[in-house]
Amino acid sequence: MNIIELTDISKSYFLDKIKVNALSKIKIEIKKGEFTAIAGPSGSGKTSLLNVIGLIDKPDTGSFILNGKDTTHIPLNHLSDLRRKTIGFVFQTFNLIPVFNAFENVEYPLIFTDISKKEKKDRVDHLLRLVDIPELARHRPFEMSGGQRQRIAIARALVNNPEVVLADEPTANLDSGTGSEILEQMKRLNKELNVTFIFASHDPIVLNAVERIIYLHDGMIEGGAR
């Protein structure tokens, strides 16, 4: 079953009045549970594609079906619910909320749900155990290493039981050892939870770990699945 179906997606930006084609006629299908990377040099459109898939940016043309729901004509402002329920984000710079401790950071997306307090706690505790840092629950981000922060970010991305986790350069701010550990953990979660993982990265650690690589060059798909 395809969790993501992109058809003829194009996206352009204006940079100092110059039109930049970030994505051109992208056609991708990603199945549920895939562990996929979008690769390519800087400026190839990896992040732009991830933003479209993550429902935080709208394409100029083309259609996007996410988990069977056509999102093409839904305005961006009305997508926060769908985004929260379907997609988890992992960022290059972790993007944790500095005033929250690890537990609260992971719990944050649940604020907007009807889940009971106990279930929230159980879910967050479970995820902190899954990412192997239950002892850091009461620690704030500034008290943690980069790897620990990224684990918190992964737990946060998974807390709403999303269908898809999008990770933009998740290893870029980590040393290679930590990066490998994080990737292994993500792979384990991918298998255990059957969650689709899509990376935007040109890090060999990521590219060696994924099952499929979509190469982008100048906003166009260059190759198929590995």
């Binding site: 993550g54 402002n77 926060s80 985004r83 984000f89 993007n95 909320i97 944050y108 907007f112 709403n160």
Partner: peptide, 16 residues
């Protein structure tokens, strides 16, 4: 600003 972007990306409605 970046944090606001993160909050919205993880599903915080704009009114919040």
């Amino acid at each position: 600003t970046k944090e606001i972007g993160t909050l919205m990306a993880v599903g915080t409605p704009r009114r919040y």
